[in-house]
Amino acid sequence: MPDILNFDKFFLPVDTWISALVDWLVGNFRPQFQMIKWPVDITLTGIDSFLNWLPPIIILIFIVLFAWKFSGKAVAIFSLISFLLIGYMGLWSETMTTLAMVFSAVIFCIVVGIPLGIIASRSDGFAASIRPVLDTMQTTPAFVYLVPVVMLFSIGTVAGVIATIVFSMPPIIRLTNLGIRQVHPELIEAALAFGCTPKQVLLKVQVPLAMPTIMAGLNQTIMLSLSMVVIAALIGAGGLGVPVFQGLNSLQVGLAGIGGISIVLMAMVLDRITQSLGELGKR
């Protein structure tokens, strides 16, 4: 047996390297990472306190009207029943916090993700180089990077949102890239022939035509962030994850159950509404 395949003799201490890397980052760059928290903190706190300050009736009316306008009567009725149910189960405030976490995570995903997607669509090199990064972001088990997130950003809801942003950003980058690349080359040629600058081609032709695909990416991003905000309760984030983990820890199946039901209902409402936003873009 060749010596080179002796896995006991040859061993890569990758685990030690990673620990060293994280320790080094924490030791030298913690203040910088704490600075990243600041905009997330402001956005999250703002949305959270606003949603919890608004009387539930206003939020209900808004959700129903929004759902009605974009997705029709059925979704509007479904949304009304879902949120009423959540309220009656006593999880209104947690739901608002989760909603705030999802919204802030999604806002950052849009602000960072769409420009990155646009850059990726214009440069094959960039697209190829971010692809493994996106794969890593999306597939690394959440529990694995919760630890370094805590070490760099400490615990709490803001750290939870940051973990959520990392986890849920890839789809919007990927689908923005895809949507823009799928715009028919003849249309771009036509835009150029009529004297569009590259910026005009992007804003007048590529982005509007990629909109349905970008909206599909947004939908995916929202769904992923919903699944992550619950896990984020592990590192002290508030919201609907809290009853779920309390229930699990104390074997209160009912408590975990209502937390789970609320998340599923909220996910379905958000999914239906954002999906019809995408359909709208298709005309």
């Binding site: 028919h184 036509a190 022939a193 009529f194 004297g195 032709v205 005309r283």
Partner: peptide, 18 residues
């Protein structure tokens, strides 16, 4: 020049669907 002096008509029409 493309804006003022030239225009182009395409085989596939290339109209903006949106």
């Amino acid at each position: 020049i493309r804006r003022d002096k030239m225009c182009m008509v395409f085989q596939s029409f290339a109209l903006m669907p949106h």
